[in-house]
């Protein structure tokens, strides 16, 4: 078992050697976010010197909210960057080895197609998002520290409460991301499918079939069900049945902003149907790589 673990770890490491953007992009952007406040101009916080005017209780709430807001900002930024890196990675994941003719080298080693494909899938769905989350967990406290150093008059707000508020937000963000990983898994599998099939320009293989079908539907049926379906899948919060509980301040990502009703969302049929479709596509990808070579 440990043998198998180290093998899988090796396969995952190999992906990060080849696709350095997967770990460098979150680190660089995270680094910039830490340095930015130090370079920033003489920004005034809205309430001026809050610690003097407000009572202790409201200052605590404000600093907590400040921590939450920065953590959400940091995770959204790093999450977006990670998504971009993963998108590029997926298109390249099973195409580059044929383009650079190294596929026969990889296939000369005792690594099955299933192991190869599943390692790449794990990099896209688990390891890279987790890494971005980890970077966020480090970056947000550093940003808080940088702001504390830079803006003396706001130190009453940017304190331990802000750190705590930020870190308390992290598990909630993790749940959002877990949901996102499951929800978007069909897209991930689709991009891998395009990558394994592509003779050149995998992006074309990913975009052409749905684009063609949408166009045909529009021309012959004068409807746009497919475009709507894909659109809603890409942006599930636009769906009419999106379970959003804006009234629950406790579970809210931001107090007063509310949050999705996870109980409803995680038991949603279309979430798991998507996961099943993704699994079927991944199986197909494994089968297709079986007889892929450098020709």
């Amino acid at each position: 078992m440990s043998n198998l673990n180290s093998k899988f770890a090796t396969l995952v490491r190999r992906e990060f050697w080849e696709h350095r953007a997967l770990w460098m992009a979150p680190l660089i952007v995270g680094g910039i976010m830490v340095i930015m406040p130090l370079l920033g101009g003489n920004m005034r916080f809205g309430a001026g010197d809050m610690s003097a005017s407000g009572d202790a209780g409201s200052v605590r709430i404000v600093s907590h909210m400040f921590g939450q807001a920065t953590m959400i900002g940091v995770t959204m930024t790093l999450g977006g960057i990670a998504c971009l890196a993963i998108f590029t990675y997926l298109l390249d994941s099973l195409y580059a080895e044929r383009k650079d003719r190294s596929i026969l080298f990889w296939k000369s080693l005792p690594v099955s197609d299933a192991q190869t494909v599943l390692a790449k899938l794990a990099v896209a769905l688990l390891v890279t998002p987790l890494l971005a989350l980890l970077v966020a967990a480090v970056v947000q406290p550093l940003i808080t520290g940088a702001l504390f150093v830079r803006y003396e008059h706001a130190r009453g707000v940017i304190d331990g409460g802000a750190l705590l508020g930020g870190l308390r937000t992290l598990p909630k963000v993790a749940v959002v991301w877990l949901y996102g990983v499951l929800w978007y898994s069909p897209f991930v599998a689709w991009l891998m499918l395009a990558s394994v099939l592509a003779k050149r320009v995998p992006l074309m293989y990913a975009l052409m079939p749905p684009a063609t079908l949408m166009l045909l539907e529009l021309m012959f049926l004068d409807s746009n069900h497919l475009a709507r379906f894909i659109g809603e899948r890409l942006a599930p919060w636009t769906r009419s049945d999106w379970a959003w509980d804006a009234t629950d301040p406790q579970r809210g990502l931001l107090p007063g902003l509310g949050s999705p009703d996870w109980g409803v969302l995680f038991t949603n049929g279309s979430l798991w149907l998507g996961v099943a479709v993704a699994a079927a596509m991944v199986y197909l990808v494994i089968r297709l790589r079986r007889y892929r070579d450098d020709t």
């Binding site: 650079d100 190294s102 026969l104 080298f105 005792p110």
Partner: peptide, 15 residues
């Protein structure tokens, strides 16, 4: 493939 080694082109390894 645990007992077989294979070289297609000795000058090709991933860059």
């Amino acid at each position: 493939m645990r007992e077989v080694s294979f070289i297609a082109d000795v000058a090709v390894l991933p860059k």
